[in-house]
């Protein structure tokens, strides 16, 4: 769901860059030196996870898992996902330069939203309930990301509105797959390492 250079209007690009910079600054503020290793390793994990392709019907999609990233990283998802996008643009040629801000916002803002909406559900005593909340977060993050991508396109010009609608429709199966995957990932993590979701954010900022 990368947007490329040249499609968006200057206003949208500037707004995206400013908001993303704010999110990254907030995320960095919540990352003391002791939390850098865990955030960096998780950032690398999500980079590798985004290389995984799963089949959907006749086609296949690569995972985004920004919902899961939000649940584990909280606000630190902003800098972590930004780093991933930067590396993808520079070394793989995906995305673009001027759109780096808006692309970060589109992926990381839903991650933070999912963190706030689902973190109490994830902390449930029952791993099954936690997994269901994980699934909700997995689907919600993709819904929000698609809406943000669509909004960025629609604000840039009316001619993009059909494309924005198409993005939304074609991502419905992706939402389902990400929901199921995130649910099972949360279930396993809760069984194997229950304190995983106490995570980067809580211990660092003392939020909970």
């Amino acid at each position: 769901m990368h947007i490329v250079d040249g499609a968006l209007s200057t206003e949208v690009l500037i707004a995206g860059t400013v908001l993303a910079a704010g999110g990254i600054a907030l995320g960095l503020k919540k990352l003391p030196m002791e939390k850098i290793p865990v955030a960096g390793v998780l950032s690398a994990t999500f980079f590798v996870a985004s290389l995984i392709h799963v089949p959907i019907g006749p086609s296949s999609v690569h995972l985004i898992l920004n919902g899961l990233a939000g649940l584990v990283l909280g606000w630190a998802a902003f800098p972590a996902l930004f780093v991933g996008l930067l590396l993808q643009a520079v070394f793989f040629g995906f995305g673009g330069v001027t759109v780096l801000g808006i692309n970060t916002l589109n992926i990381a803002l839903p991650a933070v939203a999912v963190f706030y909406l689902c973190r109490h559900g994830i902390a449930s005593h029952s791993p099954v309930v936690a997994a269901i909340w994980g699934g909700v977060g997995g689907a919600l993050s993709i819904v929000l990301t698609t809406i943000l991508v669509g909004a960025a396109l629609a604000f840039s010009g009316d001619e993009f509105i059909p494309a924005a609608k198409l993005v939304l429709v074609t991502h419905i199966p992706v939402m389902a797959v990400e929901a199921v995957l995130t649910g099972f990932a949360v279930y396993l993590a809760r069984k194997v390492k229950p304190d995983l979701f106490a995570g980067v954010e809580a211990t660092a900022g003392g939020v909970q």
Partner: peptide, 14 residues
């Protein structure tokens, strides 16, 4: 694949 991702998360944090 969900379990795989979950396992990778756990191992990464360790």
């Amino acid at each position: 694949i969900g379990y795989l991702v979950g396992m990778m998360l756990v191992r990464s944090v360790d």
